[in-house]
Amino acid sequence: MASEQNIQTFRDFLTQYNLVAEQCFTSCVNEFGSRTVNAKEESCANNCLDKFLKMTQRVSQRFQEHQLLNAQANGAAM
């Protein structure tokens, strides 16, 4: 079923995609002498995407650990 939950997960995924594409374009493309992306820019953008995913994963882990410690400190199984 295309539940509200699934739609929201898909929306979040696409929003993250739009965000990372914008950030990697902004960081990696600074030359407008031609209309094609050159090898250096493409390599930069690929690294940028990979690093973004690793960053969000690491931040997410640290955040979850923090939430867990908080829940334990409150004596709740939150």
Binding site: C24, S27, C28, C44, A45, N46, N47, C48, D50, K51, F52, K54, M55, R58, V59, R62, F63, H66
Partner: peptide
């Protein structure tokens, strides 16, 4: 905020450097 504080924008490699990883951990805390 932590991306801005910790991640270099040159993107010369695809891995988080050790420095970036430690910075992210401390930044979240």
């Amino acid at each position: 905020a932590c991306q801005a504080k910790c991640i270099a924008t040159a993107f010369k490699e695809s891995e988080l450097t050790k420095g970036e990883a430690v910075c992210l951990d401390r930044c979240v805390a």
